[in-house]
Nucleic acid binder design. Structure first.
Lengths: 240, 240
DNA sequence: CGGAAATTTGAGATTGTTCAAATATGGTGG
DNA sequence: CCACCATATTTGAACAATCTCAAATTTCCG
């Protein structure tokens, strides 16, 4: 009954699931990825994965956990620019890159590996390109979030973004996701105070928008919540 | 004494100045650009250059005036995501691009043209890549600006960004720039109210940080102002 | 069971908003 | 050159959102 060796195990590696959805990976890509996956490194929570100004020699692929691109002001104020989830890439610099003055910080314990080189036209390269484009779209969303949404809306918008991204990576299929973020970390991402984040979470709980307990976040009705703030999911193949 | 015909006239086209500084353009690139430049189109202030969701078939190059990428919420709130100045490119999509749900709005009258194709390794393609990278760096800055700076700091930070970019395009060499933006437009870029923007401008005037009158902005001491908010100019060749 | 970290609560201080009106400013036609 | 209009800036005062600072509580982990 023993079947021939199947394709490399993609079943439970969110990073593979995600890349595979961005562009159908061929066998070459799969095996390169699997080779990389085996040489995984890890970073402890609160440690820097890539320090500010450090020259990234190779792009990295997040496998497990949450990291974030963070910028710190001289007086200590801190802004989390974006979260990096399994399947996200770091330092994919297409060309001479103005060395982005930002640090990559492990929010939880993080596992990552070197992202195998992908020729621009190979499936892997296409997946990378799509990934970059998606990342940029989320950056634009973050600007609108911080500029024009109020505290509660910001919270909802961020939670919806994370849900959407987790679903893409196959980490969840329903409306629940792991939520290891401290209210303080959330505050630094939302441009708010942790005290105020706390109050907004409680408000949203009372209103039945979400359930947040025991490290799990459930969003009652993502579509309804999204339409309240004019949020449309980031589309993967929008044309262009 | 008549010299041989010089290279195409780059002397007073900010877009050429900028691209030429991002990557030394060879004669081929110069002449392609000049050909494009001659077929310039224009858009009136307050008109859309590219409507939301519209498929961009060709990348565009801004030649004169100010445009902005803008996102509008269902209830009318508006966020200007970034400004597009002479030499900036629109719709440089490297690959399948999640059709960015944002509109390009002409803030002033704008002249633009089709950006000539640039092979990835040709000088033009390199200039485009650097341009993209710079744009992304400014997006990250915008997130920090909106998330962690207060009203007056946001104003200063934005003004410094624009000054920096205008200098790169050779539009100004001192610390003065044209400032055609309405306080209302500034407010939409800064995530503030036009009333509050007004008050912050007056405050900065009183403190001697800037002079703003007659459509011209002068920043008294850019370096000093920048260091007050931990702002470091975006570097063009940061390694990587 | 302890202790450190995270969440929650309260009350007052700030910052930024809202609404409305007053005052420039710039461009246009006469 | 002036009067006039539309648009942009400026001002005031009340209000709302968010922050700050401290002090409980609760939760998590060993």
């Amino acid at each position: 009954m023993s079947a021939p060796t199947p394709l490399p195990d993609v079943s439970n590696e969110p990073a593979l699931t995600r890349l595979n959805r961005l562009a159908a990976l061929d066998e070459a890509a799969q095996s390169e990825l699997n080779a990389s996956l085996r040489r995984r490194r890890s970073a402890q929570a609160r440690r820097e994965v890539v320090a500010e100004g450090e020259v990234i020699t190779e792009p990295l692929l997040i496998l497990r956990g949450w990291a974030a691109r963070v910028r710190v002001l001289p007086d200590g104020r801190r802004q989390l620019i974006n979260f990096l989830l399994p399947g996200d890439l770091i330092g994919l610099c297409r060309h001479p890159d103005p060395c982005t003055a930002s640090t990559i910080l492990a929010i939880t314990d993080v596992q990552y590996c070197t992202a195998p080189r992908g020729a621009p036209d190979a499936p892997l390269g296409i997946a990378y390109a799509v990934s970059r484009a998606i990342e940029e779209a989320y950056l634009l969303s973050a600007i609108t979030r911080l500029g024009r949404l109020n505290a509660q809306e910001r919270l909802h918008d961020l939670f919806l973004e994370v849900l959407e991204r987790m679903q893409l990576a196959g980490i969840t299929s329903d409306n629940s996701i792991p939520m290891p973020l401290t209210q303080e970390v959330l505050a630094d991402a939302l441009g708010l105070t942790s005290v105020h984040v706390n109050r907004m979470i409680q408000l949203s709980r009372r209103q039945g928008h979400l359930v947040l307990a025991g490290g799990t976040l459930t969003i009652t009705d993502p579509d309804a919540l999204g339409s309240m703030i004019g949020r449309s999911p980031v589309r993967i193949w929008g044309g262009c």
